[in-house]
Computed example of a mutant assay.
Amino acid sequence: MKIPQCAPGRFYGAHSAEMEEAIRKVFAGGWYILGNEVRAFEEEFAAWCGCAGAVGVANGTDALELALRALRLPEKSRVAVPALTASATGMAVLRAGLTPVLVDLDQYRTMSVVSLREAFRFFADIRAVVPVHLYGQMAALDEIIPAAAEYGAAVVEDCAQAHGAQLHGRRAGVFGVFGSFSFYPTKNLGAVGDGGLVTCADAACCSELEALRQYGWSERFDSSEFGLNSRLDELQAAILRVKLPHLDKDNEKRRFLAARYTAGLTGLPLELPLERPQSRMVFHQYVIGCECREELRKFLADRGIGTAVHYPKSLAEQQAFAAASRTELPETERLLPRILSLPMYPELTEEEADFVIEAIREFFGA
């Protein structure tokens, strides 16, 4: 049995007719950039998410950069980000002309409020906070947002791995001033190429982002400010419109598979994912912690089971972020050599999940 760690092509196998019809309509329509499909997807995603509006962009990194630009912060202002995240999070901060401050994780592998408050005490010029809903787990926004407000900092959610995750019954992307999403093919809601989107707290924010994503145009061919060329194309929007109605069901399948993993792996010398109280995790990844990670990873690979490490280096260890400020990072440093992502996607079968469980149990002699 061969089980990849991720398999974005499996959705197509189950929904090929819908997807091909959506693609056909785009080609037949002859309009490929910022047309009806993008507008419809923005409206549908905003309604699904429960926010005032949404603006489609070229990718998730641009989404976060544009959201930060729209805050109009002074140049080089500090932005608090978790040290364990995709490098895209930190890169978006740098591209926006801002300075990252790296903070530690809590027991749920998201931004530590204790570490964040420590950062505020040390760095008075933190003007924004970017909590990352890592692996599909909501960060502690009910604590982070009040802490940020005390110091006059705006909150921009990095929701790239959390399409549909909830905290206190509200979806990711509606808590901060902005929420940034990625539609990279392996995401819970993935395109067949790159794509991204920003959710907005009000309509004025949406209008500002619409200008920033397209050269800073105040009107066509008139750039009134420094903007980007970052537009979600019609083809990707059409495909995302096909996939969005299936997302809640697909997230439930991820939760079912995660529960199966947890039941089968409990009792082994592993750290299993914890779900934050009053939240609903969507398991973009199912990440275990293992003291003998590399040995386990090789053992699984020999049996045809793909795994991944999200992520092998913290931002603190990457040269691009050498100038970033930081707090102490004990939990990040503890986790880094242990984390391992098991196969996780809605099309993973129960038989495949059980094969993974049995292989891990065999590794530990259980």
Rank of each mutant, 00 (worst) to 15 (best):
L348C: 01
R303L: 02
S314P: 02
H310I: 07
Q318C: 11
P312E: 05
A323C: 08
L329K: 11
T349P: 00
E294H: 15
T327K: 10
A353C: 12
K313G: 00
C292L: 13
V356G: 01
K313Q: 14
E347C: 00
A316V: 12
K298E: 15
T327A: 10
R338Y: 10
K298T: 15
A359P: 08
R338F: 10
F355R: 14
R361L: 09
A316E: 13
R361P: 00
L348M: 02
L296C: 04
R303G: 01
I305F: 09
A323F: 13
G304N: 08
R338H: 14
R303V: 00
E317K: 12
D302S: 05
V356Q: 03
F355P: 01
A316W: 10
E351P: 00
M344E: 08
R361D: 07
A308D: 11
R338P: 13
Y345E: 01
Y311L: 02
A366Q: 15
I360P: 01
S341W: 05
E333Y: 04
F363E: 06
L342C: 09
R361V: 01
E294S: 12
T332C: 15
F355A: 14
L296G: 02
S314H: 07
H310A: 04
L315C: 10
A324Q: 04
F364H: 05
R338S: 09
I360D: 03
S314I: 02
R293N: 05
K298I: 10
A316D: 14
F364S: 04
F321L: 06
G306T: 08
F321T: 07
L300D: 03
L342T: 04
K298W: 12
L340R: 08
A323E: 14
E358G: 10
L340I: 08
L315A: 07
A324N: 04
R338I: 10
L300E: 01
R361G: 06
E358I: 03
E317M: 14
H310F: 15
S314M: 10
L329C: 11
D302L: 06
F363A: 08
F355Q: 12
